[in-house]
Design a protein around this nucleic acid. Structure first.
Lengths: 151, 151
DNA sequence: CCTATATAGTTGTATATACAACTTATGTTT
DNA sequence: AAACATAAGTTGTATATACAACTATATAGG
């Protein structure tokens, strides 16, 4: 559906205005599609994001700082996200012996297993977008980079 | 900055995967840019969104239902958003006499004045994206529509 | 009419988010 | 080595969000 129909709005002031609103709207739309599919697994999109980062480090530990700088949404509270994952047994956490200010966080076997499920969800999402061909997908990616490159 | 550098990640599994992550990331990034500029005016982006919808109806009233179906984020609680705007004197609210289940919400003069300020902010944002030319902006808009058009 | 159903908002609650203040540990000066 | 500064996490709190349950009004059927 066109953005104008989604928002029941006749038009936008300029192509740039329409672009800004549409990227925010579509980003949020995508996030909700994803969240809603992750929910049955008991994961929020942010928790899934953290798990993915931990898998990237596996079998090495990650610190909260490392997690934070790689998260999609930097402002959220990594400590409490990790708390949640800990409760579910998806990660382990212990004080780093070399630098006791740091905490070492490692994804567990159970966490890795769960990620296999979420991988399938992401893959399902990708397949849902087959009306977008790979060239277009790449183009969209480049254009997004370009939007953020405005200083 | 490229998405890979933002997230300190080497690569993505496919152009589609990169697209999905990049649209979510960039949408959120845009939202924060906007929110952070609206904050000095004491408005959240959602409150600004509602005010804009009310201006679209002005001088006619809008009901909560109408607001809800036009909001960028439909799941948020329109009642409480309007409460906030009411506290700030930016809207009036009264029971609709023809159908007493409905409430008529109208933007006040003060609300209209404030929107002039937020218009400037949006315009400022648009100008920040001058590295994107109007054709590209239009293209991005169309591609966003296409992403959501996947049934 | 009286009951059932649908509509329009409101309220409650659990969770999440944003931001600032606070600990604790390490590094740096003098 | 004491004092100060910085770094890495944690905690507190106010606000926001998501979802479900609830209230009040209106419409429709028997």
């Amino acid at each position: 559906m066109r953005l104008e129909d989604e928002l029941k709005q006749k038009s936008f002031k300029s192509p740039h205005h329409r672009m800004i609103v549409n990227v925010m709207f579509t980003g949020n739309w995508l996030l909700k599609e994803l969240s809603c599919q992750l929910k049955p697994l008991g994961l929020s999109s942010q928790q899934n994001n953290v798990l993915g980062i931990l898998r990237g480090q596996y079998p090495n530990p990650a610190t909260l700082g490392l997690i934070q700088e790689r998260m999609m949404d930097r402002d959220s509270n990594a400590t409490r996200l990790v708390d949640k994952l800990l409760e579910k047994g998806l990660v382990t956490r212990c004080q780093c012996s070399e630098n006791r200010r740091k905490v070492d966080i490692i994804i567990t076997e159970k966490g890795l297993e769960l990620l296999k499920e979420t991988d399938k969800i992401i893959q399902g999402l990708e397949e849902r977008f087959k009306q977008i061909n790979p060239d277009e997908a790449a183009l969209i990616g480049e254009l997004m980079d370009k939007i953020r490159d405005c200083h």
